[in-house]
């Protein structure tokens, strides 16, 4: 008798008895063998740490000696800690500047590159290349370019007759300089994603609108942008998550300074856990950030669902 595959699409037939059941059991064994590496790593280094982190956030822990239960003290201390407030403020300022700017600039570039002009491939490459470069390399490079003494930026300003700037060493500029660096490296992502989405916009819609006498602005406002809105919502969420988690660039360029002007939340968490060895306190701050990210993701999801006309009211 030829060996037949299990008819996955059909419900098990009771009369097909033992052979089938044995077959299915061996199938389950194979399946578990296939997934066990993934399950092991993901359970051990993701699910377990999530729970562990929660426990840590109720403890005082120095990463070495056994920890001590302190209840909600870490969270209470966070509420009072001016450094944490400063970190939250810096992160919010950074995010509020970076996210809309990167999306708007990315969209504008994509709309221009979507026209039939020459060298589109070259432009796209140039805008996207900084994205593949590590935040470390970006940070080291811009620390040099913006070095107040030896940097090219001040050299150029000198030739233009403008007085030298402090850039990353100036507390009133550093955070904005970081936004500019991330715009340099992060805008290309928005551009290529919008470009890909623009290829999918229904050309017949645009043609129809054009025949109805819609101008360029109207086409953009009433046809193209609505068609892109799922991608825009995705990018908004994605860029926001990335911005709220910024760390590497800050570590390499400013280490949170000068005068705490670029201490962002993740830098604060890292500092508490791995420099001050107050891991419980760091874990509590990490939980605050994670809950904020979760709330954000849920809100975005609801927003997206509300925008989709197909959703029925009965679904809720």
């Amino acid at each position: 008798m030829p060996r037949l595959p299990i008819p996955l699409t059909m419900p098990a037939n009771r009369s097909e008895s033992r052979a089938l059941r044995r077959r299915r059991r061996s199938e389950a064994v194979t399946a578990w063998a296939f997934i066990s590496p993934a399950v092991l790593v993901i359970l051990g280094l993701s699910v377990l740490p999530v729970v562990w982190s929660l426990l840590l956030s109720f403890q005082a822990n120095d990463l070495v000696t056994p920890s001590r239960w302190v209840g909600l003290d870490n969270y209470r201390a966070l509420r009072e800690d001016p450094n944490f407030h400063q970190a939250v403020k810096n992160t919010v300022v950074y995010t509020v500047l970076y996210v809309p700017l990167s999306i708007a600039l990315g969209l504008a570039l994509a709309l221009v590159l979507n026209r039939r002009i020459r060298f589109v491939g070259l432009y796209r490459t140039l805008f996207f290349v900084p994205f593949v470069i590590s935040a470390t390399a970006q940070g080291v490079l811009f620390s040099f370019i913006l070095d107040p003494e030896f940097g090219a930026a001040n050299s150029v300003l000198h030739h233009l007759g403008i007085s030298p700037q402090g850039f990353l060493t100036d507390p009133s500029q550093a955070l904005f300089v970081l936004v500019a660096i991330t715009l340099w490296s992060g805008t290309g992502l928005c551009t290529v994603i919008y470009l890909a989405a623009l290829q999918d916009v229904d050309q017949s819609l645009i043609e129809a609108a054009r025949l109805d006498g819609a101008g360029r602005f109207h086409l953009l406002r009433h046809v193209t942008l609505p068609a892109l809105s799922p991608v825009s919502v995705f990018l908004l969420l994605w860029q926001t998550i990335q911005a709220l988690q910024v760390f590497d660039l800050v570590y390499v360029t400013t280490k949170g300074g000068p005068l705490g002007s670029t201490t962002v939340i993740v830098y604060f968490i890292w500092e508490q856990a791995f420099k001050e060895f107050t891991a419980g306190y760091g874990a509590a701050a990490a939980y605050v950030l994670a809950v904020a990210l979760l709330v954000l993701a849920v809100v975005m999801r609801l927003l997206r669902r509300e925008r989709t006309p197909r959703t029925k009211a009965a679904a809720s």
């Binding site: 377990l48 740490p49 990463l63 990210l293």
Partner: peptide, 19 residues
């Protein structure tokens, strides 16, 4: 597995260090 994709690294890094 899908849920863990949404977990930010900062939340797991301290326990991962301990593991």
């Amino acid at each position: 597995m899908l849920a863990t994709m949404a977990v930010p690294f900062q939340l797991t890094m301290i326990p991962t260090f301990l593991v």
